[in-house]
Structures are given as structure tokens and as C-alpha cells.
Write a protein that binds this DNA or RNA. Sequence first.
DNA 1: CTCGCTGCAAAGCCTTTGCATTCGC
DNA 2: GCGAATGCAAAGGCTTTGCAGCGAG
Lengths: 159, 159
Amino acid sequence: MEIYERLGNELKRRKLRITSQREAVLSIFIENKGEHLTADEVYEKLSHKNSHISKATIYRSVELLREMNFLSKINFGDGLERYEVRDAHTHQHHHLICNECGKVYEIEEDLLDDLEKLIGKRTGFKIVDHQLNFYGVCPRCQNHHKEEIEKVEVQQVRK
Amino acid sequence: MEIYERLGNELKRRKLRITSQREAVLSIFIENKGEHLTADEVYEKLSHKNSHISKATIYRSVELLREMNFLSKINFGDGLERYEVRDAHTHQHHHLICNECGKVYEIEEDLLDDLEKLIGKRTGFKIVDHQLNFYGVCPRCQNHHKEEIEKVEVQQVRK
DNA sequence: CTCGCTGCAAAGCCTTTGCATTCGC
DNA sequence: GCGAATGCAAAGGCTTTGCAGCGAG
């Protein structure tokens, strides 16, 4: 089923209204699949499309879309709340965050399905979602370090 | 090695100063192992010990302690930055968060050591940390749901 | 004695809220 | 037309920052 149709159905089911703003906010996430957008970034992207929706409405919409499972909330520890489309048909994916440059890489496969089931069984939790972040230093930043060390060594040799 | 000694050494190594405030902040985490404290909670716990340290200093200290790997920063999606002691000798643990009551449970074992190594090898990242959160409904809240449903059914039968 | 650290208050930023107006149904 | 949703501006809450004074080395 098409996603905007699903949105309409879900809103009806909850006796909420189908508004252009709600559809527009969802459209930004669909057009930017794979990005982890903050409310402010959604606002900017909408502005560029000459669609002026107030920030208050964006905050209200992303939270609603999350409750209806169209979006996932993610957090990379930078103090901002981010959201991304949640596609029921694809696997969950995870994030690899570089502590130095802040860049976020994605790991496409979901390696935690079995783990999730196991933990659910063992704890009695009805688990509906998980979020896994790895933190480290990406290859690029590792190379920069090496270069700096080499520079220092060269300078010491020159002394 | 004792942890305050490690703190002193690490501060010296970085040519920073050993202050009573830094030790006091770390002490709160040691005395509250297993809790996930916000800056404000640290402030409150210090006040109860008649140790009045300004919030600014607490924010600066927890961030420094994190950089030095004495603390881990964790985020449960409630808009607050939390920290907990990071014990090099014990395994990492994960969090199980109830979407209804907000309670956080801990899963003691670390199931991701191998996964971390695998991903490091495959991506070239030098991974130093990971954070895994599961979200769902805890057994207690599931029971409340059942009771509510039963209530409704009983009322319907009575009609 | 020097320079880093702290405390205080103010500023900054992201997010939420109150309320009048608009608009879906 | 009714009640929900939006927009605006203001408020709220957590965190950071500037700067004077203090204190570790």
C-alpha cells in the first residue's frame, strides 16, 4: 500500500484529521530517505520547497508520525532529536558514529532480530524497537592522526 | 588501581588540575553505580551531602570525565543527557526502556563484543563504544492493559 | 606567581505551550 | 458549524558561556 494512503488510513482510524502539513512533513522524510533529520532541518527543507509550515507544527507532526510508526526517533548524543522514515519492509539498520568528525555511517543489516526475541522471552518485555549506535574513529580521521604523528616525528628528526 | 588515583593520573597526564569538585562529581557516580544520572541529579545528590558545586562546574566535569572514559553518556530519548560510571573491568550492559512507564531496566551481559569486532573489521572503524537500547512495554504495563480490557469486557457483559 | 578552574548570572538553543484563527469533515 | 489543527509568540527547560575571583601546582 502506498505510504500516503497508509497515513490517511491511520489518521482516520485515530479520528484525527488529514492535513496538508502532516503529509508535507512525511514527504520530506520520504524524499530524504537515509537522512537523520532534526525538526529544524525539516523546516528548512520545507522552506526550500516554498512550503511554510510553522516549527510548532513540525514538532507536533514528527512526534505524531513517530507514534504512528512512520518515523523512528534517533539520537546521536549531539543534543538534537532526529527522526528518519521507518520502513516496515526493510530491516532495521544501525549507526556508526565518528567521535572526531561526527559523521554518521549506516550499517544496513539488522543483526539483532534474534537477540531481540531472546531478550523479550527472558524478561517478559514486549519489545517493539531497538536502537544500536557504535562510536569510534572513522578511517579518515584515523589517517589524519597518523599524518600528524608523522609530522611530529619528522620535525623531531630535523631538530 | 584505585579509581581516584586513576583520575589523578589521567588529569596530570593531560596537564589539568586535580580539584575537589572533579573528585566529588566522580564520587557521586561511584556511590550510585547502576543509576543513569542527569547533571541536575548529580547536583541534587551533592547538595544532600552538603557539597555545593555549581551546575556549570557539574556540566563541565561530567563532560571531562566522559572524555577521559570514566563515564559513558547515555540517552533514553527523554530529552535529557545522562551519564553512568564506565567500569573497564565489567562488561558493557544494555538498556530496556518501557515506552509506557519510562522505567529503565538493565541487561547485564554484553552480547555485542563479537559484533563490534566484526563491524570494526568490515568498516575500518576503530570502535571504542556502543550503546544499545531496546524499547517496548514492560510486564507490569502489559498487565495493566489486560486489566483495563477485562474491565471493559465486564462492563459490556453487564450492560 | 601563573594559569586553569569555579561560581554566578546571563545568554543560547531546542522544544513545548497558550490562545486566537483557520480549516477538515 | 463543531472541534481539531495550525501559526505565532511567549514561555520553559536544559546546557553553555563570559568574566571576575579563587586556588592548584
